[in-house]
Design a protein around this nucleic acid. Sequence first.
DNA 1: CTGTTAGCGCATTCAT
DNA 2: ATGAATGCGCTAACAG
Lengths: 337, 337
Amino acid sequence: MATMADIAQRAGVSLSTVSYALSGKRAISEPTRRRVLQAIDDLDYHPHAHGRALASKRSRTIALFFPHRAKGLSEMHLEFITHAAEAAGEHGYAFLLSTSPDEDAEILRMSGQGLVDGLILMEITLDDPRAERLRDRGFPFAMIGHRRDNAGISYVDLDFADAVETAVRHLVDAGHHAVALVNAAPSLLAAGYGPAVRALEGYTRTAADVGLDPIAVACEPTPRAGERALAELRAARPDLSGVVTINREAIGGMVQAAADLGLAIPDRLSLVAVVTERLAQLFSPTLTTIDFPAAEMGRLGAEMLIRRLEGGEDPPTQRLLRAALTVRQSSGPYRGP
Amino acid sequence: MATMADIAQRAGVSLSTVSYALSGKRAISEPTRRRVLQAIDDLDYHPHAHGRALASKRSRTIALFFPHRAKGLSEMHLEFITHAAEAAGEHGYAFLLSTSPDEDAEILRMSGQGLVDGLILMEITLDDPRAERLRDRGFPFAMIGHRRDNAGISYVDLDFADAVETAVRHLVDAGHHAVALVNAAPSLLAAGYGPAVRALEGYTRTAADVGLDPIAVACEPTPRAGERALAELRAARPDLSGVVTINREAIGGMVQAAADLGLAIPDRLSLVAVVTERLAQLFSPTLTTIDFPAAEMGRLGAEMLIRRLEGGEDPPTQRLLRAALTVRQSSGPYRGP
DNA sequence: CTGTTAGCGCATTCAT
DNA sequence: ATGAATGCGCTAACAG
């Protein structure tokens, strides 16, 4: 492998001239620059990432923390990851993926030892402790998701409260008088899982605003639980005609229960889910959704981190995305997912 | 940040002693080792990855190439990626994810400049050119998937032919007399997409072996196409009672078509899909599957690469996994996915 | 068993 | 506008 020294020799210049020709950090005469570039081309030279990182104290690498401890793997996470990686690549950054269960140790290792210049955090809880630790260490990071207190922190997130509000209003506008929310798991809600908490907030406030009785249940992420949830909701409210959910794993079960109860979707029951378009498209027609902008979120997460690394310090970028509702036409009763 | 020099000073030993105490590459007396470890603990020292990489010419980093050009993002890919990353982490390797569309340039950059020690390739075609290029360069890599010619190459893949055979035999044993294969897209089949080609092989040979008329169709990865495929198959063969598919995106449509045709699943039509357990579980009961071992494949891919890096050994590891069939009980007609 | 030293490939400060 | 020299943090000879 060619090194800068090889280039220097072949171009008949000094090592530092090659370096400066590459970085443009000081003026180089046109003739010498051409000779350098020619030599680089001849020798198929590519700068050595580690040598550069050592000397410059910048690795041009960012990492995404994805502790997949729970079972929550989905196509949504894949979109976060791939689009964050893609954005990083476009900006000349390498992209490291860490799935270490021992996050604290990893954070120290990565933030302390120059392995990466910055971090992206996912699966943020309302009082996520990792964010504080990184902020205290003064280490650059961005979040996909957000906390209760986000002072000085860059993040991008879906506005779940707004998403649920949009869904509920859509149903109310369509004439529904009883609309329920099927939320994430009880344990997540209790643990302060942001999307669950905010979905409930959005639902509650919208129900109050439009004069609907609030009917919200937390539901385990399984089809089985989805079946039960819908059956119980319907038993309690025989006039139930609309359901909004952020619980993707429960959708299949809710659809099954609807059929078992003789509630054809969308004719006798309307279901609106907050999921990625990719998931919605797995189903045969009739999944009306609030399109989860996972790809955009992944991309923005990486970009706001890199912007911060490149120079533009404070203030942090904070973006709460609003998602659009897509009505997918039905050619008959829903039999999704 | 503490460096090895700081540790050496605090422990009252030389720099190299610290290095050797850490690497274990030469004997260190117990007392000095303890002093060194104590100093490391006191100063919260962590080795600097880039310094180490520069000096040792090994980065302890592997990269996974995931060109997500097509639309083929799914929970299956996520399992490949996260489990490969996890395995890498467990072995002390950092995990780089590259989604660069310009793969050749990336391969050169990464393989040439010491950024990574080895690569994992995905989405392998029957005559994948990337593999040859890497083999010619003598750069360590492993594949998730496999080519027609795999001489000297490490890989792990699902045995699609075997998977389809298992599915067909399962249906035949259950008394079906007309079993069709709904394959991947025509374009993929034509392009030599391994899973599609091998699924067809396995289906054809099994059909011949058990005396079944071969009924195979290639199908675009959409519910719409799935609907049409099933309707057409049924029109051509009114006695069709079993369908095997590797086309996850078409499943929802096939289920819908079945219902529209009055074919209750699983009572009047049996459907067996080669998909991950995670996808199967999105559906309400009754998706019988050949469980796609994506997690295991990701993990094995990383491990066989790392084994090669650590041991430097030929012969390559080549593993064709057989997947088990899981019958999921039905509590009524199928309304999945 | 331990210390001294020479790089690894590059960015950067001093010179000129 | 260019060169020479220093050092980033570490590994691995080379010397005891």
